[in-house]
């Protein structure tokens, strides 16, 4: 359908240059399927999502919902979301960078790299719900590790309450997809370190330590920081793992949007989901803008 339409457009596009003109459709028509699709399923939903935040129960314009973003309960949820995202982003970035370092020098098409790359992709992009199950099976009330610790070492993981189904319980499962995401995003930067830089350092009198502290780390800093931001954004916008782990309540912002959508009235307001969505988008735009700025600096250095 759309494919043949654009193929035809491409076909005609080429003939514009030749003298003979047959059915002469303008070439830009070939771009319409993409434009239409993106408009219908990306632009309109995004605008609608944010716009509903400005509409009250009767469909009239209101700033009431927006004001709710200043509500202490909502602010608290945003803070919890920030906290989870920040902790898992920083820890994930450090651990992930360490793994990237360990992978340096291995052939990119070798067996180890293939397995690590695929495993990282699965955990970072596919996991979601299944990662929640993995942690329920591991450190849930009846989890394998929970039982093992209790039976063998007499340690009760949940002596202070069942934290797995609360905000702190998100940390481990989130790390389980943050570290792999770091491996995927940071590896290219680390591989971009040119061997000449290490050799030049050595011929100029510097040792390995000097190379890492004075050359490699400063060069990698923007890219590392960018990756931290990306990880933060990833955790901040993640829904599936939290939803599968925590079936009720509004501990983090995405769960609060769930609550607002399935009309658990939050703070007695309707259309709060829109306002929350706006809040999330604002945070994401700030994060991704900073990310792309850092990224462009990295690219300039590593050409």
């Amino acid at each position: 359908m759309t494919a043949t339409a654009s193929a035809a457009a491409v076909h005609v596009a080429g003939d514009v240059g030749t003298a003979r003109s047959r059915r002469r459709l303008p070439a830009w028509l070939g771009l319409t399927p993409f434009a239409l699709y993106v408009l219908l399923f990306l632009a309109i939903p995004t605008v609608l999502a944010i716009a509903t935040g400005f509409v009250d129960g009767e469909g009239a314009f209101t700033l009431e919902n927006l004001a709710a973003l200043g509500d202490p309960v909502i602010l608290g949820t945003f803070l919890d979301s920030f906290w989870v995202s920040a902790v898992t982003a920083v820890a994930g970035a450090v651990l992930g960078a360490l793994v990237c370092y360990a992978l340096l020098g291995l052939r990119p098409d070798g067996a180890v790299r293939s397995v690590v790359d695929s495993a990282a992709s699965v955990l970072a992009q596919f996991g979601g719900v299944m990662l929640a199950f993995a942690f329920i099976a591991t450190i849930g009330l009846q989890g394998v590790v929970t039982v093992l610790l209790a039976d063998v070492f007499g340690i009760n993981l949940f002596a202070d309450g069942v934290w797995l189904y609360q905000v702190p319980g998100l940390l481990l499962p989130y790390l389980y997809f943050q570290v792999p995401l770091m491996v995927i995003t940071f590896m290219p930067s680390l591989e971009g370190l040119k061997p000449q830089w290490a050799e030049a350092t050595a011929t100029l009198g510097g040792n390995r330590f000097v190379f890492w502290t004075r050359i490699a780390m400063p060069i990698l800093a923007p890219s590392f920081l960018g990756s931290v931001l990306l990880l933060f954004a990833n955790a901040f916008s993640s829904y599936a793992t939290a939803a599968a782990l925590i079936s009720q309540g509004s501990q983090i912002v995405p769960l609060q949007i769930r609550g607002a959508l399935i009309s658990e009235t939050v703070l007695g307001r309707e259309n709060l989901a829109g306002a929350l969505a706006l809040g999330m988008v604002l945070v994401m735009v700030v994060l991704m803008t900073a990310y792309s700025l850092l990224q462009s600096r990295t690219e300039r250095w590593q050409r």
Binding site: K194, Q196, W197, E199, A200, T201, A202, T203, L204, G205, G206, N207, I215, P218, I219, R300, W301, Q302
Partner: peptide, 30 residues
């Protein structure tokens, strides 16, 4: 003798300047 004590100067084929340092800082490094 390890590289960093051989007291040699080397110019590589390309891309050996440290990208986060200015030309002057590169020259000062040794």
């Amino acid at each position: 003798v390890p590289v960093n004590r051989r007291d040699i100067g080397m110019v590589f084929q390309s891309y050996s300047l440290f990208p986060h340092m200015t030309a002057a800082e590169n020259v000062e490094f040794g």
